[in-house]
Design a protein around this nucleic acid. Sequence first.
DNA 1: TCCCGAAAATTGTTCGTCAAGTTATCTCAC
DNA 2: GTGAGATAACTTGACGAACAATTTTCGGGA
Lengths: 216, 216
Amino acid sequence: MAIQLVTQSVGDALVTSLRERILADEITAGTAVTEASVATEYKVARQTAKAGIERLVGEGLLERTAHRSARVPLLDETRVQDLYFARGVIEVRAYELLASKRLLTPEALTAHEAFQACSTGSNVADIVQADVAFHRALIDGLESDRLSRAHSVIINEIRLCLAQVQNAHLLAPAEIAEEHQTIITAIRDGNVPRAGEVGLEHLRHAERNLLEYLRR
Amino acid sequence: MAIQLVTQSVGDALVTSLRERILADEITAGTAVTEASVATEYKVARQTAKAGIERLVGEGLLERTAHRSARVPLLDETRVQDLYFARGVIEVRAYELLASKRLLTPEALTAHEAFQACSTGSNVADIVQADVAFHRALIDGLESDRLSRAHSVIINEIRLCLAQVQNAHLLAPAEIAEEHQTIITAIRDGNVPRAGEVGLEHLRHAERNLLEYLRR
DNA sequence: TCCCGAAAATTGTTCGTCAAGTTATCTCAC
DNA sequence: GTGAGATAACTTGACGAACAATTTTCGGGA
């Protein structure tokens, strides 16, 4: 068996870079992301740029209608609600299943500790990153490619919202860490209903904060 | 306000057509779907064909690795298990939520009746179609675009499996209709845990049948 | 000011080309 | 005959240019 090399096509690299920049709020909402601009910026063919944009549209990180430029979608109330509702459907059931199996992967625990570690710091992007990583690690524990993928799409769009809000109205990191701990405890105890409840409560807090920010 | 016309780009039409043909098992698993063949068959440019194929790869209806032709994925055990697991996570929680709201849309009831109507017939494709439509209608009742979308991707891949199996090993349509009825009843009664349980049971039956077929 | 039409910008789609990687074929040594 | 290696054929990756269709912008009249 030959050693496997990890290669990446130009198109893949382009999508990865664009995705990062969007999630980092470097490409701000509302500004046009034209095929030509991406093409010249990255020195790639327009077709390549087009393909990349289309993939991101598929992920919900860009929006476009026919013959008009793609844009990073603007955060609005219905979007946030839809996003957290869909996320809740997946995560609540996932946490219940994890609890029923008392399944806590080392990755999830590591992610939790990593969050606690950087929660004392002030870098908001890091905190968001660590928060997302924790939830992702929990879902990944169920070892379902399809579920992880569905969850990932939704959570990426949520990261988009968080990026736009920035440090403005996040919960206190300490509070988030505490809620994460209750989720872990519920799973470890095999307390199925509680795992679902605290998971849902955790999401509700995040959603409420975002909505309050939007309504001000 | 002008009257809105529904138009469709060539690319969209191509994807729609290919998706239908794949789900109808007209493009059988394993056979190569090359960019050139699609291009000549539909008389479109290779670029257009490529874009269409890539979109279907994103939906899980085609598989491809770098520099090799796309193929309709072959049904195998782990795939079926992953698919039904992910579907279960979404549907179980969705049915519980529907029950907690006693939410039964006219569309869902209509879909149920439509299934019963064609369950006496022998056309397998119609039955699969009606079955999928019923579950879709239930999920759509929650009115979450993101959830419907995530569910749709998974269920399309399941349709792929069902298409490959054909009439071979489906449950008896009458049995399916009966299980659908129990789901509806549980939702109507607002019996939350039961809605989740019978939903899960329904999926388990379908999964078990598919797996038995695969293992023979 | 408001509306209309021309110009500019942008996407949709096609063609042709070359490079790079994969698969199939064929030959030659053994 | 058979296996290994070279060769050819096929396929995708990426680019550049071009034209049509559509949207947006903008300037000039009424």
